[in-house]
């Protein structure tokens, strides 16, 4: 009998696939370019990549 082990495993596989694809496709990571640990009080504006935000 097929169980949720199969589907949960597939979900994890998809997730790893997505991250692998992302790392190959994107510009790479630079932690020295990272924003402050916490946005609150940093004075830096939020990116606005949110589903409620109209494109700017």
């Amino acid at each position: 009998m097929r169980t949720r082990r199969l589907t949960a495993g597939l979900t994890m596989l998809l997730l790893f696939g997505l991250l692998l694809f992302d790392q190959v496709q994107s510009g790479g990571l630079n932690r020295f370019d990272a924003p402050p640990l916490i946005a609150w009080g940093s004075g830096q504006a939020a990116g606005g990549a949110h589903c409620a935000a109209l494109p700017r």
Binding site: F21, Q25, I38, A39, W40, G47, G48, A49, H50
Partner: peptide, 24 residues
């Protein structure tokens, strides 16, 4: 909210995953 500077959301991220795929 405090860490990101914006509230909890879900669907922007999902659309972005597909946008990256489409772009690739």
């Amino acid at each position: 909210l405090l860490v990101a500077g914006q509230p909890w959301g879900v669907v922007y991220g999902l659309g972005l995953w597909a946008a990256k795929g489409a772009s690739a």
